[in-house]
Simulated scan of single mutants.
Amino acid sequence: MPISAIAAADRAFALLVRGPDPLQLDGRDVPGLPRRRLTLDTVRDLLVGGVDTGVSDAVWRILSAHARADGPAWVVGAVGVAVPGLTLIASRLAHGFAKQADDIGSEVVAGFLQALRGDDLKGPRVWLRLCWTAWRTGHAARRTETTLELPHDLPVGSRTPRFPYGHPDLVLARAVTAGVITAEQAELIGATRLGGTLVDHLAAELDVSAPVIRMRRRRAEQTLAAAIHRGDLAVRANRARPR
């Protein structure tokens, strides 16, 4: 029986951090890490245990640079370091979609790799932005249900979809485009409500208290809810002009 993409990545990662020449980072290159050579599984343990945002950002920029320049082993190494977070994202997205769990996991990994290899990682909160891309691609796989058997009593014909027409990530993107909320507020809602990021972890990364994060999220959600209630985010259908 084939194993999931995330499990396969974790197995490959385990091989890379064993033996006489395991993949390593030099902790002296990142203030805040132990000042010695660190195997990537040690780096993963340190990140999971909690580090300052600046430390996390520096580590992920280094891993990304290696993945882009130094071959497949470093790609596997970077994904392996991310496995705990990717596992959480995939498990949250697969809840209620058990038949699509493998596809969701594969797309979560694919989205993460896309961001790792191609995104501009110069800004802050690198890990959250990598996870946000992974969540979006995984969520898209959850919406694709063409392989599932349709029920016999499925209604036919067209009907008007519910406002504001779209899945949560699209609603957030539309709200940002409309100027209802900021991109930062959308990322906060998406990461904590949809992406599996814990408020306490985010608060630690931003060096603020958890109540402050919850207050910011509540204000953003109230603004978003009011816009949805007013119909500000509804997609208007293009009416065909009479010929």
Rank of each mutant, 00 (worst) to 15 (best):
P2N: 05
S4A: 13
A9W: 01
D10H: 15
A14G: 13
L15D: 14
L15H: 14
L16A: 13
P20V: 12
D21I: 06
P22L: 12
P22S: 05
L25E: 01
L25N: 03
R28N: 13
G32Q: 00
P34L: 07
P34E: 06
R35P: 07
T39S: 15
T42G: 11
T42W: 10
D45P: 05
L46N: 04
D52F: 03
D52T: 11
T53G: 15
T53M: 13
T53C: 15
D57W: 02
V59M: 03
I62A: 12
L63K: 02
S64Y: 02
R68G: 09
G71W: 06
P72R: 12
W74Q: 09
W74G: 11
W74K: 09
G77W: 03
V79I: 15
P84I: 04
P84M: 04
P84E: 00
G85L: 08
I89N: 00
S91G: 10
L93W: 00
F97A: 13
D102G: 10
D103N: 07
D103A: 07
I104N: 04
G105P: 00
V108T: 09
V109R: 09
V109E: 00
G111Q: 05
Q114S: 12
D120N: 15
K122N: 14
P124R: 15
L128S: 14
L128R: 13
L130R: 05
C131K: 12
A134S: 13
H139T: 03
R143P: 03
T147I: 10
H152D: 15
P161Q: 05
P164N: 01
H167R: 03
L172D: 01
V176E: 01
T177M: 02
V180M: 01
V180F: 00
I181N: 01
Q185R: 10
A186I: 04
E187Q: 13
E187H: 11
L188K: 01
L188R: 09
G190D: 08
T192A: 05
G195V: 00
L198T: 10
L198I: 05
D200E: 15
L206Y: 08
A210E: 09
I213E: 04
R216W: 15
R217K: 14
R217E: 08
R219K: 14
Q222E: 12
H229P: 02
H229W: 06
A234P: 02
A234I: 02
N238M: 10
R241C: 07
P242K: 08
